[in-house]
Design a protein around this nucleic acid. Structure first.
Lengths: 344, 344
DNA sequence: TTGTAGGCGTTATCAC
DNA sequence: GTGATAACGCCTACAA
């Protein structure tokens, strides 16, 4: 036994060491480290002091084995926009600060390779819970297997509601409608849309919002003005090139995320089309990219960080109290910047 | 006991279930799942079949407790550029594919808040090893405590060599010298530099390369042409505004990363300075941002993903074979794009 | 308010 | 090649 309390190189102190040093039982030490009640303040202090002296850190594996939880939550993301992912990460980690939970990032190539394997992955990684972001949060197979197994998970920005488990979202339809109506209000009539990856249902919601706005204004929706993208910068370039090559080209383009809008801006620059004089451009998400390009993008500010924070909070509640599923809708904001103007 | 092999909702199969079903001992099952030798092929198949039938996944916590490792590695990053971080993540995860190790992302505010806490964090998170990216990889306190504890770690892009542990880097000095010489070769004489955050030593290396190139060309280094940034887009704007407000403004700016170069481009746009006609701009890293702005940035292609992959490979080797430290230098590439031209 | 006993699911040690 | 059995460090009961 180590009477001095000095622990040799590589040898970690255990709860027994702390107990011995503090002159209490291991259960008392355990109580202190789990913030359980019924410990005299004086005892608590003794334990904490002893722990510090020998640099004790609870063994996560032992804790997980005995307590049947790993304090590990996973985030699966297949979003191609690094800024979006960075925001998600930031929100989750922010909420996790001070909590015993840690965040595991799960590799992810495409939604299809992942479908049907999420539960196995979660199990083999020993996760306590899962945060699903688009498009996986809308994958029926994934939802079904997680639900069937009773595995705790929350969804960020799901397109369809299940109400089975917490969902944090924003109103994509209304936001897309707003930004389209803003373009219409500027005087635009030929307004194109670059939709997102069809496998991301949020893209569909945004398309619906666009259609609503157009219809309400009595404007035709020319199929030539609906292009498909993949939420990537490059796909935005491609889509915009097709749109702008047409003889009856649009005077405004609404891209379903900032990356594609930046791509459209790039395409316009290539063709010498000045934005916003000859072409108005709107994005969606308000990621940093919207402020990096010139001119800055008019866009919808999606509270990604807040959404991630809220989703994490909901998951923690789920893990602790086994609370029911619910739906949280976060507010968005139309941000008007230099990329939009009346048609020239 | 569950004779049918069907496992109820939420109840996970254990190694005992597999052993019973396969008619072997748990040790044999363990051997199979750890790819140990001395198991007859026939036995192995039986075990694997039994495991699949009851959807067995080894319990990570138990494995960690008994085997004294968590199969968890951590990456600590304090780099403000999301694209850089995304590339690091991608490289690590790519190398980890197929390995039993998982990646933990560690929250990180600033290098100073982290210093002296990395080991404690690694311990309390139960990590097996650590990947340190700038600027933490150069923090003496961190290096010292990890080394003293014999904790396995590798460093990505460290400024100073320790040789104690694997280091994956590129030659920042030579790269910065190359890109500066390229600008000089175009005919520029007044070349400014926007250095990075002083707490990131890579910025110093790049400054040295710039100085070398200038001296070799017999050019004075006007202190007015050396600005300080923080590796962020906004800091690039600020620094460029200061540089461009001067009456004797530079004809070219070399920013120590792409984010700041993009900021400089933004500032030039603000002032109506056409790039590259009136101002040449060079970045560093070749993150996606370099290709998103217009015109695209001339930059140094830093093989971030490859570096992360190599660092991960080195860490895995360290964890398995206890190999020695070593130094890997990856090649860089000067990428010439539209943001640079002869002075107008 | 505190302590004791038992078990969590695996790996390691040694025997067969 | 294979198998019993003892750790591993903690948490959950239950007692005191």
């Amino acid at each position: 036994m180590d009477v001095t309390g000095k622990i040799g190189r590589g040898v970690r102190a255990t709860i027994l060491d702390v107990a011995a040093r503090a002159g209490v039982s291991i259960k008392t030490v355990s109580r202190v480290f789990n913030a359980e009640p019924n410990v005299r303040e004086e005892t608590r202090d003794k334990v904490i002091a002893a722990a510090q002296e020998i640099d004790y850190h609870p063994n996560v594996a032992a804790r997980g084995l005995a307590g049947k939880r790993s304090f590990l939550i996973g985030m699966v993301h297949g979003n191609p926009s690094p800024y979006y992912v960075a925001d998600l990460n930031a929100g989750v980690l922010d909420r996790l600060r001070g909590e015993p939970y840690r965040l595991l990032v799960l590799p992810f190539e495409s939604a299809s390779t992942m479908s049907g394997k999420v539960l196995a992955m979660a199990r083999s990684s020993g996760l306590d819970g899962l945060i699903l972001s688009p498009p996986l949060g809308d994958d029926p197979t994934t939802i079904a297997e997680l639900t069937a197994a009773g595995f705790p998970f929350v969804r960020i920005a799901p397109a369809s509601a299940t109400w089975l488990t917490p969902e944090v979202r924003m109103d994509d339809v209304a936001a897309a409608q707003d930004i389209t109506e803003y373009l219409i209000g500027l005087g635009h009539r030929r307004i194109a849309i670059i939709r997102g990856d069809p496998s991301h249902p949020s893209g569909t919601a945004r398309l619906i919002g666009y259609r609503k706005a157009m219809r309400r204004a009595g404007l035709d929706i020319d199929p030539m003005l609906v292009e498909e993208g993949l939420y990537t910068f490059d796909s935005g370039i491609m889509a915009a090139r097709r749109l702008l090559a047409s003889r009856t080209r649009p005077s405004a383009i609404f891209a379903c995320n900032d990356d594609m809008a930046a791509g459209a801006l790039f395409a316009a620059n290539e063709m010498g089309l000045k934005v916003p004089d000859k072409l108005s451009l709107a994005g969606f998400d308000d990621t940093p990219i919207a402020s990096i390009v010139w001119p800055r993008l008019t866009t919808i500010s999606q509270p990604t960080v807040d959404m991630a924070r809220a989703a994490t909070a909901a998951l923690l509640a789920l893990l602790d109290d086994k609370k029911e599923g619910g739906r949280i809708t976060m507010p968005y904001r139309l941000v008007v910047r230099g990329s939009t103007a009346p048609p020239g």
